[in-house]
């Protein structure tokens, strides 16, 4: 059993105890809250289908192999480990894809090697940018996301570069 296994049940338990003390109709309020989110959920489904289809086709086409070959000169300039380039490309687009690439890096190197550590920090400190943007804005009527994607991708890029820098510095 891990520590993180305790967090969710304890939070839910604490909320219910607090609710009962404050004399809240916990069952009916739960139903109301669930109902609201059910409606929201339905509204984001088309965005999820659209994005996952595009990402799935992109991954299947072998585009990542070609792209990682194309950016490798830039990466070696920054002393960024070559093994981690595919991870940097997949990470913003697909969460499950990034996990699969991460596992293959751990298999081919060691988790305590330079590339293994950089990959761990990259995965641990970033999010699936495209998915988050699609789901968050997909639930609204927004069509123009303005500079959201640019800022988010710059944050990811910073994260990737800094992960190699900090590992160099600490180990």
């Amino acid at each position: 059993m891990r520590f993180s296994d305790f967090i969710i049940p304890c939070i839910i338990g604490a909320v219910l105890i607090f609710g009962l003390i404050k004399d809240v109709d916990v069952f009916n309020e739960f139903i109301e809250g669930a109902k609201e989110n059910l409606k929201t959920g339905i509204s984001i489904l088309p965005a999820i289908i659209a994005l996952m289809t595009a990402v799935g086709m992109f991954k299947a086409s072998g585009a990542f192999d070609i792209l990682s070959y194309a950016v490798s000169p830039l990466a070696s300039f920054f002393h960024f480990p070559a093994e981690c380039i595919p991870l940097a490309l997949v990470r913003p687009i697909s969460g499950s894809g990034a996990l699969a690439v991460y596992e293959s890096i751990l298999n081919s190197t060691h988790p305590d090697s330079f590339a293994g550590r950089v990959a761990s920090v990259m995965l641990g400190s970033t999010e699936t940018t495209f998915y988050t943007i699609a789901v968050y804005f997909g639930s609204t009527k927004i069509k123009k996301i303005r500079h959201t994607l640019f800022c988010a991708l710059m944050a990811d890029l910073t994260g990737f570069i800094i992960s190699a820098v900090t590992i160099c510095f600490f180990f």
């Binding site: 939070i11 839910i12 909320v15 219910l16 607090f18 609710g19 003390i21 404050k22 809240v24 916990v26 309020e29 739960f30 139903i31 109301e32 809250g33 669930a34 109902k35 609201e36 989110n37 059910l38 959920g41």
Partner: peptide, 13 residues
């Protein structure tokens, strides 16, 4: 749905 429900209880209390 679960978190929506929990959130609503937390909100009302």
């Amino acid at each position: 749905c679960v978190w929506g429900g929990i959130m609503r209880i937390a909100d009302k209390s």
